[in-house]
């Protein structure tokens, strides 16, 4: 396993299930325990950990989906019924609690699913399977624009929603370029405030097993994958390795630039435009289109906020000068 010094600590370039198992569980556990959290304070400016998904390896076995559901079961909602009557009626209760087994889309109980399709590229038909979940954007709109501060970006780049603070207004879903978070009504803080008039449950999505990472363990989907589809490591290493892999296979990269950059990098042997055309898209089934940086317009406009006081002061000085002369 390639090792290098990282902010004074020894850590692996990246960790996959195979490398985790290779060194023996105990040794790998100790390594992961010392290394994964260390990456959470890495020095690339963000300290983000990213995942690399080589989708040429994915066979859609569903092990990652199953592992995610089992590992995160304790975080899944247990709603109180009957749900509060919503006013106005336009606000609808959303209930997935009787459909917990749905695994062909994202739901509050299914934070990861596998999109499968066939794509013809350069005269060859490719079976393409893509594990889909939150992209964990480097500047996540779901976190930055939540009006209640109910979401946070951890130092290691994980975007997570607090089920104790979230009101279920679904703004995070609206502003998410991939519409990832899913709502469950009948649970959360809104029940204690104005349940009929404000809020509508809690939004759920992949938190990349932040609690496991904090304990030095791999996210469940990475650990469970028998094909080593995913690996995790400091973002700059993952980006470099994604490009090396893409070059090796004559493939394509998705997630590096989308929405200003994400911490989920896909590498595919076929263009993502073709995959996007072929996959089933819609509710709970995200696209794979190019995505502009949604936070950029606002952040560019922030320059106007810096100029505004100068303009104000100039006007006051101008008026003073006019009066004195």
């Amino acid at each position: 396993m390639p090792i290098y010094e990282y902010k004074g600590e020894t850590m692996p370039h990246q960790i996959s299930r195979r490398s985790f198992l290779k060194g023996g569980l105990a040794a790998a556990g100790a390594l992961a325990a010392s290394s994964v959290p260390a990456a959470a304070v890495s020095a690339d400016g963000h300290g983000h950990l990213a995942t690399l998904l080589d989708i040429s390896k994915c066979i859609a076995c569903g092990a990652c989906v199953e592992a995610c559901r089992e590992t995160n079961q304790h975080k899944h909602p247990e709603p109180q019924k009957p749900f509060p009557k919503m006013i106005p009626a336009r606000a609808k209760n959303v209930d997935w609690s009787d459909k917990r087994d749905v695994d062909d889309r994202l739901t509050p109980y299914n934070w990861l699913y596998v999109q499968s399709t066939y794509v013809e590229h350069e005269g060859e038909e490719h079976e393409v399977n893509i594990p889909r979940r939150c992209m964990h954007c480097t500047n996540p709109p779901c976190v930055k624009l939540c009006p209640f501060g109910a979401a946070e970006q951890l130092n290691n780049g994980i975007a997570r929603i607090s089920d104790s603070l979230c009101m279920g207004g679904a703004k995070c879903k609206t502003v998410c370029p991939w519409k990832i978070p899913e709502r469950q009504s009948g649970v959360g803080l809104y029940l204690d405030l104005l349940p009929t008039l404000a809020g509508n449950g809690v939004m759920y999505k992949c938190d990349r097993c932040y609690d496991r990472l904090a304990q030095g363990e791999l996210p469940a989907c990475i650990e469970a994958c028998p094909e080593d589809v995913q690996s995790i490591g400091p973002r700059e290493d993952i980006i470099r390795e994604a490009h090396e892999l893409a070059e090796e296979m004559g493939g394509y990269v998705y997630g590096e630039k989308e929405n200003g950059g994400t911490n989920t990098i896909y590498v595919s042997p076929v263009p993502f435009e073709k995959i996007n055309q072929a996959i089933e898209k819609g509710k709970g089934k995200p696209h794979l289109k190019p995505v502009k940086d949604h936070m950029a317009d606002g952040n560019n406009l922030a320059a106007a906020l810096a100029i505004a006081p100068i303009a104000g002061i100039a006007a006051a000085v101008g008026k003073f000068y006019k009066m004195t002369t």
């Binding site: 949604h294 505004a308 006051a316 009066m323």
Partner: peptide, 29 residues
Amino acid sequence: FYTTHLVHYIFSALLIGLASYAVFHHVLT
């Protein structure tokens, strides 16, 4: 939400400009 976000920034710039003007106008004149 992105539009209201931009609108909020634009009028924030206006308020900052006005506040700066008010403070300096008061102090100077």
